[in-house]
Design a protein around this nucleic acid. Structure first.
Lengths: 209, 209, 209, 209
DNA sequence: AATGAATGAGGATTCATTCAT
DNA sequence: GATGAATGAATCCTCATTCAT
């Protein structure tokens, strides 16, 4: 009678006790939008409710608490991001060169962050530390995906073996994650930014090359 | 220690009506510490007051509002940062090569962000957009400092002229600003990180160099 | 089991419009259990519903309101109590001495209060005065039963005629009703307590007897 | 520098961290009055605040939480009661007979419960179990006072040694504590009720005396 | 300079209740 | 008979702010 877990898409190993529902999705999206646009402080239950045409109390039918909503923004966001980037890499030929793999990953990552449906990274900044901590595991998993990508580059001799990947990866992702904040203002497209990030990282900006 | 106004980079003509006082500094520092450690939400007037051994109401003798405190964290932080980096550049020989100038700037920037007295960047993330916006002018001034640095590199032929600096600079600074968040966890020193950032940016990570 | 109306002591002409149903009984029992164990505040419609494997809204098919449930706890409880004590007295020989009648009544009363199925007195304490007031009539009827019992004792010369029964009865019943609260803790049996109450009331605790 | 504890009246061994203030007293009194008159549910912070001419939020300057107020009602009440009864007993000649001591104690106890300033016992009934539990220790101390009183009676041969005091005392106090509930309605004075309780307990109601 | 006391606006949350299905 | 979804009113509580002292 209780077949809920069977419904969950394979591969999403999160122990999601609460069943998904269309409303949950809408609420999470509304909350994310508010946080991105006006900050965490402005994201009150009343504000979220108003955006989905409800009264504040009604949100509690779908979520146990405000935190649960915020956590879901984070988790959903990273999961989706991970899935997309992983898929992009998987769809490349097995012998694709590192530059190509990097380019694909960066492209998807940046496009996702900037896209309408992916604001979690943008949200992340506004969250109180206590809540940030809770999504750490998921974030680490995602970081590992990138670590593996770069490790592949080192293995194939395409990346300088002298580089400490455990420093490079967070540094590189950190820069990438900040992109949405200034991109809109600079008038650039996400493709341009992705290209800049890839070229810069691979070849540097030195005039000698 | 209270030389802020003297140090203020020319051109930043903020009409700072309120006279500085030692207490102001202590309060700003207390607020910054709380934000960094426990997040913006935990930074209540009472909490700040407690940290400087006062009662909440007393803070209003020194500041007109909570926002004023927060703004001062930001402004003070960027001003100091600007001053330090500018000073570091100025103290180099006029004909110093770009690589050296970049290295100096990055070193000071990163060291400052990670240092005890400079948590404004760390604070910045937690702030509601409305407040962030207010410090934009100061931030733009700082960004220009870097733009000029890179432009110098292009002019001297040390930096690839094909690069859009208006994209590169925010991208690069964005990455740099994120450093404090993961640096402590990775166990790296700020020197290591600075070196990584400089080398990577100049030469890229490609094995061919 | 659903013979409530048949048992109702003559004179208690409550116009019970709502037809009884097995579900009503279960719900009332569930509510009573919650109140006794966790207090009135914990007795929410959702909690009651959960205990009878329902959703909150469904309770409204059986009861017009929460108050109706609570009132039924009270009424059902006093009715049952009344019926049991009355039955115990009726089953005694018509010429039974006062001591015996008192003993029988106290025994049944205490045993009932402590028994699993009779928690209304325990519930009574937690109720808001407004609701308490509503069950007054039923309680007065029960009090009259005891008044008659004692009046019989006076008439037969077994009880000191100088005693104001309108003071004694509420005083005595008040003490009896409190029994469940401390009895479990003291480790006594309801028989012991009943015996104590009877002896004490009849003979006092003076050493001279 | 922290000499607060020195201020506390000797004998009141409660670890009362929060300093007393006239407002605290007024608030506690207001809350008690509401609970007695309209029940625990009606005792909202707003209602209490209104009674002391404040806004709800202001109460939190004086108390950390609603629970703290309620607990203080209980503790204050029992402490006062204990102090009064103890004082009444102490002021009797050392060789006063048991009947006299009992009479004095019951008189003070009943008068207190019924008096304007002592409604805690009346309040007690309305409280959720969780809160009741918290005042247990204080209540046990008070119970012991009565236990000692009766034990004295047994020792002097004035009380039947065969009686289980650990049953009798809660039973007797239970009855006494209920008095306020019906007394007003019956039109009796607290002296009458006290007399009834004492005579009944000492000699019983048997016509033979 | 600082504080004790208060305020008012607003926050998250809970709950009895309703109603279409 | 029962439920899923929603509501609105109320609850406790927090906080920036004010102001007389």
């Amino acid at each position: 009678m209780r077949v809920r877990s069977a419904r969950r898409p394979a591969g999403t190993a999160t122990a999601q006790v609460t069943k998904p529902s269309p409303m949950r999705g809408e609420i999470v999206a509304a909350a994310a939008e508010i946080i991105v646009r006006k900050g965490y402080a402005a994201c009150t239950m009343r504000a979220v409710a108003a955006l989905v045409d409800m009264k504040a109390g009604s949100l509690y039918y779908h979520f146990k608490s405000k935190d649960e909503i915020v956590e879901e923004i984070l988790n959903q966001g990273i999961e989706t991001l991970h899935a997309r980037v992983a898929e992009a890499l998987r769809s490349l030929p097995a012998d694709a060169p590192f530059a190509g793999r990097l380019s694909a990953a960066v492209g998807v990552h940046v496009a996702s962050l900037v896209g309408k449906d992916q604001q979690h990274m943008h949200v992340y900044e506004h969250l109180p530390p206590v809540i940030k901590r809770r999504s750490r595991k998921m974030r680490e998993t995602y970081t590992r995906l990138w670590l593996d990508l770069f490790a592949g580059g080192v293995a194939s001799g395409e990346v300088d073996a002298g580089i400490d990947l455990h420093l490079l990866v967070p540094y590189f992702l950190g820069g990438l994650n900040r992109v949405p904040e200034w991109m809109r203002a600079s008038g650039a497209s996400s493709d341009q930014v992705a290209a800049l990030a890839v070229t810069t990282l691979l070849d540097g900006i030195g005039a000698g090359r």
